[in-house]
Structures are given as C-alpha cells and as structure tokens.
Simulated assay, not measured.
Amino acid sequence: MTIMDHRFLPVRAEGVVQDISDLIADSFLLAGPVDEFAGLGVQIAIVIEAGAVSANVTLDRRTVNLLPALAAYFGAPGLTYPEPGTARAVGSMGEGRISVTITAPDPAQATSPQLRAAIDQALTPAARTAPGWVA
C-alpha cells in the first residue's frame, strides 16, 4: 500500500474557487471607507499576503497635518526622507503583526511651524536617535 504525501493532496477546484470568490467579495466591505478617505486626501492600500498584513497610508498636502497623530498612534520611531519632498513614518499595530507605512509631503516644507512642532512632539522619544531620523 502506498501512502500519499499529505503536502501533495489534490485540491478541489470548485471549493477553492468559491473560497477565493468569497474572499474577494469581502474586500468590498472596505471599498466604501477607502473611497471616502480618498475624497479627503488620504489614500489607503491594505496588502494581505500569506503570513503578512501591511497598510500603506499616503497623505497629500491637504492632509499632511494628520502625520503627527498617525505617527504617534502607530508608534513610528521617527521620520525618514526617502526622496526630496517626501517624509515617511513606519509603525505597526496589532501587537506588531501589521506594518503601517505613512507617506506624506515633507512637513518641513509646510508653511505652518506649528505642524512641524506637532510632528516632533508626536514622535516617540527614541525617534531622535533612531536610524534615519532627520531633525
């Protein structure tokens, strides 16, 4: 008698197709809120892969003022400047299981000194010594 390796058992197409279809349909529950945020100037992309969930939040000039609150909420240790005119903060949620990247126009270029002060205050104390931190 031959025992078939459990890692190579055949997959029933009908069941898998239905499960995939259900999963895709469930994503439409997020579409409405994502569209509403887009109208305000906040783009949100949620990426779900095997073993990893990440969220990318992109702010525009109308919503750059949200950067301090988002950075603080998601525990971003500091800002990096991956390219001229762009600031990035990377934090997490769900006990570190979900990575959250926030990208915004460089707040140093904002006209409001209060915005820059709010960003500096919102970032954790370790931010000022974290790799990539630019004061």
Rank of each mutant, 00 (worst) to 15 (best):
M1E: 08
M1L: 08
M1Q: 08
I3A: 13
I3H: 12
H6Q: 09
R7A: 08
R7K: 12
F8P: 05
F8R: 13
V11Y: 09
A13E: 08
E14R: 10
G15K: 03
G15R: 06
V16D: 07
V16Q: 08
V16H: 09
V16E: 09
V17T: 14
V17K: 11
Q18Y: 10
I20S: 09
I20A: 12
D22Q: 13
D22C: 08
A25C: 00
D26R: 10
S27D: 13
S27W: 12
S27I: 06
F28P: 01
L30T: 09
L30W: 10
A31C: 06
V34N: 12
D35H: 06
D35C: 00
E36V: 01
E36K: 00
F37K: 07
A38F: 08
A38P: 06
G39N: 11
G39D: 12
G41H: 02
G41T: 04
V42L: 04
Q43T: 11
I44M: 09
A45E: 07
I46C: 06
V47G: 07
I48H: 06
E49A: 05
E49W: 01
G51L: 08
G51H: 07
V53P: 02
S54A: 14
S54I: 05
S54F: 07
A55I: 14
A55V: 14
N56L: 13
N56M: 10
N56P: 00
V57S: 10
V57P: 10
T58P: 14
D60C: 12
D60M: 13
T63R: 08
V64D: 02
V64L: 08
N65Q: 10
N65S: 10
L66C: 08
L66K: 07
L67G: 01
L67P: 02
P68N: 02
A69R: 07
A69P: 01
L70V: 02
A71I: 00
A72D: 02
A72Y: 00
Y73D: 03
Y73M: 06
Y73F: 08
Y73K: 10
F74Y: 14
G75F: 04
A76F: 03
P77Y: 04
G78N: 13
G78T: 04
G78F: 01
L79W: 07
T80G: 09
Y81Q: 12
P84M: 14
G85R: 15
G85F: 15
G85H: 15
T86M: 10
A87C: 11
R88T: 14
S92T: 11
S92D: 12
M93P: 00
M93D: 02
M93I: 09
G94C: 11
E95G: 07
S99H: 04
S99A: 11
V100D: 03
T101K: 07
I102L: 04
T103D: 05
T103C: 00
A104P: 05
A104R: 02
A104H: 05
P105K: 02
P105E: 04
P105Y: 05
D106I: 05
P107N: 14
P107S: 13
P107I: 14
Q109T: 15
Q109H: 15
Q109S: 15
A110E: 06
T111C: 02
S112D: 15
S112K: 06
L115F: 03
I119V: 14
I119R: 00
I119A: 07
D120W: 04
D120H: 08
Q121P: 00
A122C: 05
L123M: 10
P125F: 02
A126E: 15
A127Y: 03
A127H: 03
A127W: 01
A127K: 04
T129P: 01
T129I: 10
P131R: 08
W133I: 01
A135T: 03
